[in-house]
């Protein structure tokens, strides 16, 4: 029992790093995702094409490969171009960027589906009152779309928490990495990874409760 408890305690030490990366990635993903979603619905063909390729490539290749490219491939390219030494310093930047960009591709599709789910009559009513395109998005479409995409966005956040475990491969000291380090020291691999699993479970379950709560509250708002 002692071993399991210790496993949990050690894994939990990685939780702040995992959560920080997730938080940064979700915010970056939301902002970039919104832009990509708007680009994908644009009337300009080139913009639509770029957005489509962006989403296809990021969703069609493994996160692990994206992380490796960013962590080891990019420094090599920078060195060969500039001739100067480059390293990431702290690989947590790789975590922020890789997860943020990866998540933005999924987020873009979620946001697009939400925006497109709003009845065209809403846009027509707003525009006929004199609101411009931006005001219509800001006051009418986005608030309604947001309500629709909250569950999907919650899922994306939960998926992201689990996916960030990949970052342990490049040595970021997240939940999984802490467990791995302890396992190799103590040879208690089973207890170590059970501990890791428990910490992830606590995070994902808590989060899904939070999402369900927000969903309920927003549904109430509809009725006044």
């Amino acid at each position: 029992m002692q071993g399991y408890l210790q496993g949990i305690m050690i894994a939990a030490k990685g939780a702040p790093v995992t959560l920080l990366i997730c938080l940064v990635a979700v915010i970056a993903g939301l902002v970039i995702g919104l832009l990509v979603a708007i680009a994908k619905m644009s009337k300009i063909k080139v913009l639509r094409g770029i957005a489509t390729v962006y989403v296809d490539v990021l969703r069609g290749t493994p996160l692990l490969v994206q992380v490796l490219l960013l962590a080891y491939g990019i420094p090599q390219v920078i060195v060969s171009i500039t001739g100067e030494q480059f390293n990431w310093g702290n690989f947590i930047w790789v975590g922020f960027i890789a997860c943020g960009i990866n998540s933005s591709a999924y987020m873009a599709e979620i946001i697009r589906s939400g925006l497109q789910a709003i009845d065209k009559g809403q846009t027509e009513a707003a525009r006929s009152l004199g609101l411009n395109r931006f005001q219509t998005m800001r006051y009418i479409i986005v608030p309604q779309a947001f309500k629709i995409i909250v569950p999907a966005m919650g899922n994306e956040f939960i998926t992201l928490i689990k996916e960030t475990s990949i970052l342990s491969v490049v040595g970021i000291r997240d939940i999984t990495r802490m467990g791995t380090l302890w396992a190799s020291q103590s040879f208690m691999s089973f207890q170590a990874y059970i501990g890791v699993a428990c910490v992830y479970l606590v995070l994902t379950l808590t989060l899904s409760r939070v999402v369900a709560y927000i969903e309920r509250r927003m549904a109430n708002g509809d009725r006044g």
């Binding site: 009152l129 004199g130 608030p143 708002g221």
Partner: peptide, 22 residues
């Protein structure tokens, strides 16, 4: 066109009220 639309009110068959607003 936004300025011009301010001067013309429109009422639709399907009302198109904003459901998230009072």
């Amino acid at each position: 066109i936004d300025k011009i639309r301010e001067r013309m009110g429109m009422v639709f068959q399907s009302f198109n009220l904003f459901p998230h607003k009072s």
